[in-house]
């Protein structure tokens, strides 16, 4: 159940729940500062509980202050499944054999493109 509101807590979580709008849904948010249309993104757990993160159609992210929200409606849903293709690494008998061990760290990490978090996921298959 909490996964529907990934990373949200406090006021922002109550707001999403009260309008029945989930993370990854396409939503129209009406606020005292005007209307905002976009996809509701998960929020980083360390950020405050007063804003909802929205990905605009132009690709930019913005935060909406929950205190300014007057209405929120869901009109679509689009969860992102991000997967890097793994490819077979070509081999040839006249080349030396090298083993690469992954332990993590920045070299193996990449951005979770939707949420913006750096994740230490490492799939050596990505290398090729």
């Amino acid at each position: 159940m909490t996964d529907l509101f990934k990373g949200y807590k406090g006021a922002a979580l109550s707001s999403l729940k009260s309008y029945n709008v989930r993370v990854w849904s396409e939503a129209l948010i009406k606020t005292t500062r005007g209307d905002f249309n976009g996809i509701i993104l998960p929020r980083s757990e360390n950020d405050d509980d007063r804003h909802i993160v929205l990905k605009l159609p132009t690709g930019y992210n913005v935060g909406i202050d929950v205190d300014t929200i007057t209405d929120m409606t869901e009109h679509g849903y689009k969860e992102a499944h991000y997967k890097i293709p793994e490819k077979e690494f070509p081999t040839s008998p006249d080349k030396p054999n090298v083993k690469l061990f992954g332990t993590g760290g920045t070299i193996a990490s990449r951005l979770d493109y939707r949420t913006g978090a750096v994740i230490p996921a490492f799939s050596p298959g990505e290398l090729y």
């Binding site: 005007g34 905002f36 804003h51 993160v53 690709g59 930019y60 913005v62 935060g63 929950v66």
Partner: peptide, 11 residues
């Protein structure tokens, strides 16, 4: 006369 965002996110 734009709608001002609640939170600036750097992209």
């Amino acid at each position: 006369k734009t709608n001002i965002v609640g939170e600036l996110h750097i992209t």
